[in-house]
Each structure stands twice: as C-alpha cells, then as structure tokens.
Design a protein around this nucleic acid. Structure first.
Lengths: 146, 146
DNA sequence: ATGAACTCTGTAGTAGCTACAGGGTCAAGG
DNA sequence: CCTTGACCCTGTAGCTACTACAGAGTTCAT
C-alpha cells in the first residue's frame, strides 16, 4: 500500500506501462543500463518515476535502432551530467549513416531479387532461373551498381 | 596428390575459392546444409565440384538476405528433385516482402532521427532536444506516418 | 626425419533478448 | 489467521549466424 502513496510500482506494472517485457527489464538491469532498484523486504523490485523515464528512453532508442552499446554511451553522457548537445548530435548522425548503409544494402538485395523473380515463370517446370542465378556465383552480384 | 587428379580440394582451398571462412563451412556442415564430405585417411575433409557449387549457392543466398532456414527449404526443393519454379518464386517473393518491410522500418527510423537532429544546435549546451525527444516516450514515434 | 602449413574437434563467445523451472511474496477474501 | 491466486524471484538455457580460440593431429616438400 505504501507503494502507491509514494508513486512506486512493481516490475509488472512498469512492464505494462512501457511495453517492455519483465525479463527484458531485468536483463537491462543485469547489463547495467537500468539501475538496481530498491527492493521490498521480500526482495521484489520497486520502481519510481525516474525508472520509468529511463526505461522509456532506452526503449525509444532501441526502436530507433540504437544498439545497446550506443545507448550505453548516450546514457553515460546523461549520467555524467556533462552532456553537450554536440556529442549527442555526433552519435545521432553516425547512427543515421549506419541506417543509410543498411537501407542501401537492402535496396541492392531487393533489386537483385526482383530481377531474378521477373525472369521466373512461376510454372510447374523444374528449371528455375532463380536457382540458376543463385548457383552462378558472386560475380553477378558484384556487378550490380550501387 | 590423388586429390588434384580427381579435382578435389581441401577445406582451405574451398574457403579461398568461395570466400567463406573455414569455420563457417564446418558450421554449415554441422547444421546440415552442407553434406558430410568424404575424408582422407587422416580425417581431413575432401571437397569436389558439387560441394563448391552448393556452398556458392548458400553463400549467394545469404548475401541476398535469405535466412538459414529459408535456404534450408530452398535446398530441400533442390534436393527433393521435385522443384517447381512456382515454389521458388513464392519463397523469393515472400523474402522480397520481408526486405521491403525492413527498408520501410529503417526509413521511418531515419526520418525520425533526421528530424531530431535538425532540431539540435550541436552546441556546447547541456539542453539537448534529441535527449528530450528520446525521453518523451512512445506516442511521438507512434504518430509518425508510415 | 623434420618443419611449416594446414586441418581436426570441441567449446565458448558475440547481440539482444526470450523462455522456462522451481521456488518465494503479496494482498484480498473467507 | 489462513488460504488462494496472482505476481515476483534467481538462474540457466535457448535463439541466429557465425567467429575465435585451444590443443592436438595430418600432410607434404625438403
């Protein structure tokens, strides 16, 4: 009951509020990006507003594709108190580049696959140009312009 | 010496020819997508042309983003002898859809990140709109149009 | 026969969780 | 007060697709 008076919650409630699974929250604690929260006498975790905020931060960063390590270093800036906007911007721009590379890779794949698919009749025939193409080796994919 | 007479190779040579690391070739054997090759008296693996072709197939499929499981089922079609072009096309089109989804996800991420970055001065200030945005929670990302 | 280069098996590590098993805790109702 | 059901605890193992060893054995030319 005192739990509600001080606006604290259990791990289950935190999980529901943030959409992060209980196991994942414990995992984040284990790897050190969520703090060890206080416990009840019985040993159950007690969370407060600041935990919710931090978990939301982590969760949203993950949704935007930041790796745990990137999040760790963002959090280090936050926790260190000596955040500068410039550092955060650097990391963000670096991350954007990574994403752009991934997009380019996937688009290249898609182009190749589309081309393969377009050559395929889709009939009941056993000769398949897709399988042919896949067996032909690497030179074909190397030639695709980026 | 008889190795060369029958156009067979060691795992190292196969690795060099295909660009697939030795450990990875053994791994593919372990998980059953490469066959157990014959061995020398001393127990070293002996590969022939058909192995090279199969490994190339796997390698190229991986480069195009097929998962091991997808490759496994493509290979099942190949090995079963009862391949039809249609089945292969189905799997390929399914895979293309997956890739398109991934691209869309990444583009959504990029848009959000770009917008966050554009609001950031990059100065030595401790107030950072990026960190703000990351703490704000999920509703902000939920509102982004796909 | 020796030595360099190669290969063998088996295990453990990577990222980022997820899914249990086998217990303990909490709070409400009887 | 006691039970009951919902919740929570720790610890370990699994997932994908490899990669990286250690410590031993093999191959082949000299």
């Amino acid at each position: 009951m005192n739990r509600l008076l001080f606006r604290t919650t259990t791990i289950g409630a935190l999980s529901k509020r943030t959409g992060v699974k209980i196991e994942t929250i414990r995992y984040y604690e284990h790897i050190g990006i969520m703090p060890n929260p206080p416990r009840t006498e019985g040993g159950q975790r007690i969370y407060s507003e600041s935990h919710t905020k931090r978990l939301t931060f982590i969760c949203r960063s993950r949704e935007l594709g930041f790796s745990i390590d990137e999040i760790r270093s963002l959090l280090k800036l936050v926790d260190g108190g000596e955040i500068t906007c410039g550092e955060v911007l650097d990391k963000t721009l670096g991350h954007i580049e990574d994403i752009q590379k991934k997009i380019a890779d996937l688009q290249r794949m898609e182009r190749v696959l589309q081309e393969m698919a377009s050559k395929c009749s889709g009939n009941d025939v056993p000769e398949c140009p897709i399988l042919e193409a896949l067996s032909l080796g690497v030179q074909a994919i190397g030639d695709i312009p980026t």
